[in-house]
Amino acid sequence: MMAASREFEFVVRKWNAWVPGMKYHPDWHDWFNNQDPIEPEQALISSNVPKPLQRRLSPLARAVFNAADACIDNDVAMPVVFSSAHGEVNKSLEMLKDMQRGEDISPTAFSLSVHNAISGLFSIAHSNHQEITVLAPGQDGIAAAFIEALGLLQEGHDDVLIILYDEPLSEFYPYLPFALTAKTSGALALKISWAGDGLPLQLCRSSEHRNDGEHALQIFSFLKFLVTDDQSLQLGNHRHSWIWQKK
């Protein structure tokens, strides 16, 4: 535990998000203010992704690829920190149901159900051989991904890509009173550096005890922070809280 809270300053060089239904809205403000019931929709992905890989991309993987596209330079690979509370757990649940029915499990579904499956496909598709980390922070929310990424910058990397993603949890799981699932899927990609053009932010710990829901909900809180004039965002659970401030 840190005795005194330290402030970390960094710059969001680029960011991009994918949420379902965005194409029906002129901008992010409109999307946040008018979230009608959303039809299932597949995120578009770059045609640069090799065909044999495209068929392996789940809707959540497509959301991740779509969000990341605007933040990556194809010829420069950078370390990536993936962060998702639930990953492809819905796929695991389907396989468990198959087992319960006495059916064989699909080897493809199994290989794509693990928490680092999307990151693996991402690294193959973009020939990215840099350090890739996949977090499952759950209750600790999105801050853990920033801490991890700042650590990579500290190690000397020029840029680090953070990708936060989650999809609604199957109703099979009792999500109340944990506040651990959002209503829609979402993927938010942020390319961060110590300096340069972009949105300068400061991150520090707070001693306030609060509960802003788990990772899946915090993605949308952070997206809202990016698109509005809000100068600060505080997110936390009963143990840790973090404050992001625009500089």
Partner: peptide, 17 residues
Amino acid sequence: LGLDSIDALELGLAIRK
């Protein structure tokens, strides 16, 4: 067709079924 080892397993399962 450019299939890989996971495809081989998946195809083996489909043939068995």
